[in-house]
Design a binder for these strands. Structure first.
Lengths: 232, 232
DNA sequence: TGAAATATTTGATTTCCATCAAGCATGTCA
DNA sequence: TGACATGCTTGATGGAAATCAAATATTTCA
């Protein structure tokens, strides 16, 4: 299926698309208006691909509404969930900055709208507003760190520990509530932490039997003892 | 051991440090001279740390001569080799751009000299020469990709496949010779591909017995059949 | 709503690889 | 030079988790 068949032009671009985004929303109103002029807005239905590995591209894609599943197919053809993009986050930087093809797939997880800005327009903006560069550099260096953290966990932690760390990451440091909502299906969660759905199911059961967590519903989990969870 | 005790000021900074580096060497001579004024040069003996996890820092570190082992300690305390920096490559971007602490350790693998540029100086340069931003964005997006590739391999490929892919990566696409030189000790290689030295030894033996490779010396390996190697 | 499709759980079995242990090789430096 | 340390290889064992299979639960949408 061609990408053209998936995406639907939204017509006039929404201001939200720019004012929402950390890489742009520190600018003042007129500057954001200026940027708005240069972006294109598109919407995708659940399951549609924004781009796929192997495609060339010269746009940066910013999520406006909905969410995108970023995944890759490894050399042996198995799927690996890399990350989920929420509104305000961007993707496509590899193909954009290196003038190469995408290595990932980006798929709408729900009805999703995105904005796209071309390489030429973005470069012009970077020259005019260097603070945008800094924001993107910030985001990319964070992303390198996250990816390295994830990679290190694969080789040094057990599956149970990776699951526990994932739950703890969801909770965050500023945890008012101890109830986390899994933002992924079990299948995607399994892929993300590098295991199978069967093992996720078993390990959650073990954590529950050890009174470290309590399953409220299929996607809601109460963390009963975060400290012990991290000490597995 | 304090960082201050490890590093030794080289006095006048070397031009090499700047002219060598992809993020700067597209500028013209005067501009590079200008940048040289702002960088500090340091040298480290084998085993000394340029920085360690948990430290704050406001400098970008660029390798001039030698090499740096970038590694991290996971939540459970085990070491994971993230990458090896060669002359012209940089590190420290996370602490620099996000004003946070390092998550990695950077250790000299041999006598190594580096240049460092401060956040303030770098920001001024980014404003003055936006092309530098683009180079850094390029490098960081490549690094995100490499790290995601590595992470995906951990979860989707067997140890044998990861080793084979690593050897194939060493060979590169433009392979005149079919002999690769392992740039890492077996221990570091094992850490990098997420296994143990014992398993590396065994798998190399298996690959040799299958006539896919031939061990010339402890660090030199001849690839006999790259296609089969990738098809494991 | 209810049937079909999809997800989740549970169980049984197998496989891969880490770990532990010991022998061999190589390098180092007193 | 030789003794010690360090690194590499090989073997034996155990354990963690993938795979295969089947039953149950949940979601989807006609």
């Amino acid at each position: 299926m061609d990408q053209r068949k998936d995406k639907h032009n939204c017509g006039i671009s929404h201001k939200g698309c720019i004012s929402l985004v950390p890489i742009f929303n520190h600018l003042d109103a007129e500057q954001m208006d200026e940027i708005m002029e240069t972006v294109q807005s598109w919407s995708f239905k659940k399951g549609e691909l924004v781009y796929r590995a192997g495609e060339k591209s010269d746009v940066l894609t910013i999520v406006n509404k909905g969410s995108l599943r970023i995944y890759r197919l490894s050399e042996s053809g198995k799927e690996q969930l890399v990350r989920v993009l929420k509104p305000g986050e961007f993707t496509g930087e590899l193909a954009l900055f290196n003038e190469t093809v995408h290595e990932n797939y980006a798929e709408a997880m729900e009805p999703t709208s995105v904005c796209q800005i071309t390489r030429a327009d973005l470069q012009a903006l970077l020259v005019k507003y260097p603070s945008i560069s800094l924001k993107i550099l910030q985001e990319l260096s964070t992303r390198v760190d996250q990816s390295e953290t994830q990679a290190a966990r694969f080789t040094t932690e057990s599956t149970e520990q990776r699951l526990a760390l994932y739950l703890s990451d969801l909770l965050g440091p500023d945890s008012e509530s101890s109830i986390v909502t899994l933002p992924l299906t079990k299948k995607d969660l399994a892929s993300y932490i590098g295991t199978t759905p069967e093992t996720v199911s078993r390990k959650l059961k073990e954590l529950e039997e050890a009174n470290l967590i309590e399953r409220i519903s299929s996607s809601k989990i109460k963390i009963l003892d975060e400290d012990k969870l991290l000490f597995l």
